[in-house]
């Protein structure tokens, strides 16, 4: 098998059954019931969030004080969000997206490298290594923040650019978690890519790096997209480490910044917080929409045989 045949396989059209008139009963059995499930699940998933949306549109309301949703539609919370000098929402938004994307790309890259090694190579300590990755993440890091604080302040003494207050330093901390459960997910997926592809390419004279970067990575695109998304979401919502590392308001992330609206018992601004939360969900949605075509975009690794 050569690269050419591989490409042919990739571009081969799906076998689309001939169009035929569906009877309602048949339609329901095949896809209709899926819509019923979909509607029920969407209601379950979205309903509690309507409260958040409703609160964000209500300038004086509380978060859960009442069952009357959307009594007022007022976008002043959204407008105000961008006009607070001490709480620079726009900066948080950009910070979160940049930090999230960089971390996601880094996590996918480091994870894929490791997963490839675990999947394709046999070496001593492979099994133990896999197990350790799982166990390390389970260790209760009760004082993890203190340790990371000490670590970054020490690193900052050598490379001020990576020390406390640096977003780059925060990204490095996040990349520390690149090898973990996500590596497993990729590992499992790599295992389903037939070794024969590697071998064929090798015969064609490709180096291991070329095989990995130009062939394998494409075949596992769905799982790369999933891991990237998981990593992005995790980074977007990470609070504890970010709140200790990033110190200036303009450098903070959404999770940290938004929390300042509600952290004081006596001056909570739930409606503003809700508006911020609604906006902060948009990048996640957008990334998911963008990545969907890779996740379920038709071609699957297994079809390359």
């Amino acid at each position: 098998m050569t690269a050419e045949t591989l490409m042919t396989a990739e571009t081969a059209p799906r076998v689309i059954p001939l169009k035929r008139k569906l009877t309602p009963g048949r339609w329901f059995r095949e896809t209709g019931w899926r819509h019923v499930v979909g509607i029920v699940v969407v209601a379950f998933a979205v309903f509690p969030l309507l409260y958040v949306l409703s609160a964000s549109l209500n300038p004086t309301g509380t978060l859960v004080g009442s069952n009357a949703l959307f009594r007022s539609i007022d976008f002043s919370n959204y407008v105000d969000l961008f006009n607070l000098p001490q709480q620079p929402f726009a900066a948080w938004f950009m910070n979160s997206i940049v930090i999230g994307l960089v971390t996601a790309v880094g996590t996918v890259f480091l994870g894929a490298l490791a997963a490839y090694a675990f999947s394709r190579m046999r070496f001593t300590g492979r099994r133990v290594g896999l197990l350790s990755l799982l166990l390390v993440q389970m260790f209760p890091q009760l004082l993890g923040v203190v340790a990371i604080f000490l670590l970054l302040s020490a690193i900052g003494d050598i490379f001020p650019i990576l020390g406390l207050g640096s977003q780059l330093g925060l990204i490095l901390v996040y990349l520390g978690g690149a090898l973990g459960v996500n590596t497993y997910l990729m590992y499992g997926f790599f295992n389903t890519v037939p070794v024969s592809i590697d071998e064929a390419a090798k015969i064609d004279g490709a180096s291991h790096a070329q095989i990995f970067f130009t062939i394998i990575l494409r075949l596992v695109a769905p799982i790369l997209a999933v891991v990237g998304l998981l990593s992005f979401v995790a980074t977007m919502s990470e609070f504890v480490v970010a709140s200790v590392v990033l110190q200036e308001p303009a450098r903070q992330t959404l999770a940290v910044g938004l929390y300042t609206f509600v952290s004081q018992e006596t001056s909570k601004n739930w409606t503003m917080f809700a508006a911020g939360a609604v906006l902060s969900a948009i990048p996640v949605m957008a990334l998911f929409l963008y990545l969907q075509k890779y996740i379920v975009g038709g071609l699957t690794a297994g079809s390359v045989k």
């Binding site: 480091l110 994870g111 490298l113 490791a114 490839y116 090694a117 190579m121 290594g129 990755l133 390390v136 993440q137 260790f139 890091q141 004082l143 993890g144 203190v146 340790a147 990371i148 000490l150 670590l151 490095l172 901390v173 990349l175 520390g176 978690g177 690149a178 090898l179 590596t183 990995f212």
Partner: peptide, 19 residues
């Protein structure tokens, strides 16, 4: 293939675990 990830893991996770 493993070294890059493991370097990060060792600095930012193993150290934290040991601490």
């Amino acid at each position: 293939y493993l070294a890059p990830g493991i370097v990060f893991l060792a600095i930012f996770q193993i150290f934290v675990v040991l601490y």
